[in-house]
Computed example of a mutant assay.
Amino acid sequence: MFAYALAALFLVLFGIGVLRDRRRFSNAVYLGLAVVFLTLALLVLVDDTTGPAHPVLKWATVALLLVPVVGACALPFLLLSNGVKMIRREGRSPANLLSFLAGLGILGLVALLITAVASGSRTLAIAGVTLTLIVGYVSFLFFCFIAYAFLYGRLQPRKDLDYVVVLGCGLTGGDRVPPLLASRLERGRRIYESQRDRGKRPLLLVSGGKGSDEKLPESHAMAAYLTAKGVPAGDILLEDRSRTTEENLRYSAELMSAGPSPDYRCVIVTNNFHAFRAALTARATGVDGQVVGSPTAAYFWPSATLREFAAIFLAHRRVNLTVVGVLAALGIGAWLLS
């Protein structure tokens, strides 16, 4: 009953957090803790349930709990496969290697634990347990991120808008809109047109400056793409100074605040893998708007999601690195005392 009570408590905190502001990572953590304690409660149920319904309930619960176990066993091989596909299609940049390296890391940890058991080495055992605790902490946060990002992407933004903000990304060949950015622009255009159909007249604010390898600011290429699709030039507002997501949002907020209504209503468009981090950044920069995601090629999603999680993890590095440091220190202390 205690595990059920804790699961209910964190579920209530999650609900309150979402009602207060969807754009908080604490919401993701509350949801993760609710799932953890509910899982513990189900494990107790499997062990202790009695009565005529016990066999069916027991095996149904076991089957449910086996799903994440099977998924965890398959995960490193799926990551390796995706990593190979990313390298073939996108090249060997550090960002494109993330899923491959993550798969190797998981297999490396498993190999370390097996070697520690087989050799009977206390040093390897302590190292394996310490790394497992660190990986467990990071994996818990990653689970929280994935689960809440999935839910956040299905929450509906405001219906009446003054601005539809589309965040830029790198141009192909320095001057052409790539498929990733075209997906964002198409989602933004659909939202803009749905507002027009309802009698509203929002502005499409395209945000993106000129990178060192680009021939023109991203927002200029984005505006050209939209006008070619039939969007009137007068309905497009350009923000062409930004280099990062934070600058995208900060400079866009300046333009929106300087408009006819300082109390603007907006929605921000990016790719689905980037939506939750963009929402966290929007909250941090004071932008009054939710974020919606556009479709992304399936093969691109794992590496991109790992990159987004790494950015959020480091954005909260004071807490996260402290926890990792404490776990590492406990492992070192155990080794010194062994």
Rank of each mutant, 00 (worst) to 15 (best):
M1E: 05
F2K: 09
A3T: 12
A5K: 02
A5H: 14
L6F: 01
L6C: 09
A7G: 07
L9Q: 12
V12R: 00
I16T: 05
R24G: 05
F25C: 02
N27V: 06
V29N: 07
V29C: 04
Y30N: 04
G32E: 07
L38T: 05
L40W: 11
L42R: 09
V44I: 14
V46G: 09
T50Y: 05
A53T: 11
A53K: 14
P55M: 05
P55F: 06
A60D: 10
A63P: 04
L64I: 04
L65H: 06
L65M: 10
V70R: 03
G71A: 10
C73D: 12
M86S: 11
M86R: 13
I87P: 11
R92E: 07
L101Y: 14
L104N: 12
A111D: 12
A111W: 11
L112E: 07
V117W: 07
V117G: 10
S119H: 01
L124C: 04
I126P: 08
A127K: 05
A127V: 09
L131G: 06
G136S: 02
Y137L: 08
Y137D: 03
V138M: 08
V138W: 04
S139F: 02
S139Y: 04
F142G: 07
I146G: 00
G153Y: 07
Y163P: 10
V164Y: 01
V165P: 01
V166A: 15
L167W: 01
L171A: 07
L171W: 13
L171D: 08
T172I: 15
G173F: 09
G174F: 02
D175N: 09
L180D: 00
L180G: 00
A182T: 01
A182R: 03
S183P: 06
S183L: 06
G188A: 13
R189A: 00
R190C: 15
I191A: 02
Y192T: 12
E193N: 14
S194M: 12
Q195I: 12
R196E: 04
R198M: 15
K200L: 15
L204C: 07
L205T: 06
D213V: 13
E214Q: 13
A221F: 02
L226A: 10
A228C: 13
A228S: 08
K229P: 05
G230L: 03
G230P: 00
V231G: 08
A233P: 15
D235K: 01
L237F: 12
R241A: 11
S242P: 09
E247F: 02
E254R: 13
E254Q: 13
E254Y: 12
A258C: 09
G259L: 13
S261P: 03
R265V: 06
R265Y: 09
R265K: 14
V267N: 13
V267D: 01
V269E: 01
V269H: 02
N272E: 14
F273D: 00
H274C: 06
A275M: 10
F276I: 06
R277C: 00
L280A: 13
T285V: 15
G286E: 14
Q290D: 09
Y299A: 01
W301E: 11
R307M: 15
F309M: 08
F313T: 06
L314C: 08
A315P: 01
A315F: 04
H316V: 12
R317Y: 08
R317F: 15
R318F: 15
V319L: 11
L321G: 06
T322E: 10
V324W: 11
A329N: 12
I332R: 03
A334H: 03
L336M: 07
S338C: 10
